[in-house]
Amino acid sequence: MSSSPVLSYSIPQRLIHWLMAGLIFFNLIFTEGMEELTEAAEEGQTPSADMIASANIHAYVGIGILCLAVLRLILRLTHGAPEAPADEPPVVRLVGKIVHGTFYLLFLVMPAAGIAAYYFGIGTAGELHAGPMKLLMWVLIVLHVGAVLVHQFVWKTPVIQRMTKG
């Protein structure tokens, strides 16, 4: 294995990043089917075929995110990741590590909680999935995008290119 520093993410890492981003946004935005199905079940109503289909799509996308997250973690461990820019303030570097670590944790735990709720009826898992985990995911996305924009336009460091051009 080479000891040279990793300057960019590999093509598979970049593809998985953007695919996961799209799937995560999809599931964060389109939750109505799962919410309607949960509400119908709580009220003792028979769910419609559309409710079930919509909830299943949400579940399948979540399972896809979980599978991609495992693959992404394997790639990160085997291919590495670029270091933060050398002139990045240490506190920002630390926050970046915490945000990325929390992202990876959520990539695994959030779908697992959704699976526990949907397939095994564990209500607490569903409440955590749709409540604090969802909110934390949105906060992390805002922090992540904000950091990329600060790097690009304030500090003039091309970190975005590591995940776009390579």
Rank of each mutant, 00 (worst) to 15 (best):
I57N: 03
L7N: 14
E35S: 12
Y119A: 11
L143H: 05
G121T: 06
A53P: 09
N27E: 15
F30S: 11
I74F: 12
F103K: 03
V61G: 01
G114I: 06
L37R: 12
E39F: 07
M110T: 10
L136F: 02
L140M: 07
A55N: 06
P5L: 15
P89M: 02
G80C: 10
E43V: 05
G121N: 07
G114L: 07
G131S: 02
A84G: 04
I16N: 00
M110H: 05
G33K: 15
I74A: 10
Y118H: 12
A116T: 02
L94F: 07
T38W: 13
F103E: 00
K134R: 14
I11L: 13
M1G: 15
Y104A: 06
C67Q: 00
L143Q: 02
F103V: 03
V99T: 13
N56K: 11
L94H: 09
H58F: 07
G22R: 09
Y9F: 15
I115E: 04
M1E: 06
V61P: 00
V6M: 10
M110I: 11
L19P: 00
R76H: 07
F30A: 12
G22Y: 12
V109A: 11
A112M: 08
K97S: 14
Y119S: 08
H151V: 07
Y104W: 03
A84S: 13
F25W: 12
N56G: 07
L7E: 15
V150R: 15
L135A: 14
K156T: 04
K97M: 08
T157H: 04
K134Q: 07
G114W: 04
A41S: 12
W138T: 01
G131C: 05
F25G: 10
I115F: 12
I16S: 01
W138I: 06
A41V: 11
M20C: 03
I24D: 06
M51K: 05
T157P: 02
R14W: 11
W18Y: 09
A59F: 04
E32F: 09
L140E: 06
I141V: 10
C67W: 00
I160Y: 08
I52Y: 10
I65P: 00
A147R: 08
S48A: 13
G22A: 12
L77K: 13
A112S: 14
H151L: 09
L7Y: 13
G64Y: 00
G146P: 10
V109N: 01
S4G: 14
H100N: 13
M163G: 06
V139D: 01
F103A: 06
A112H: 00
P158M: 04
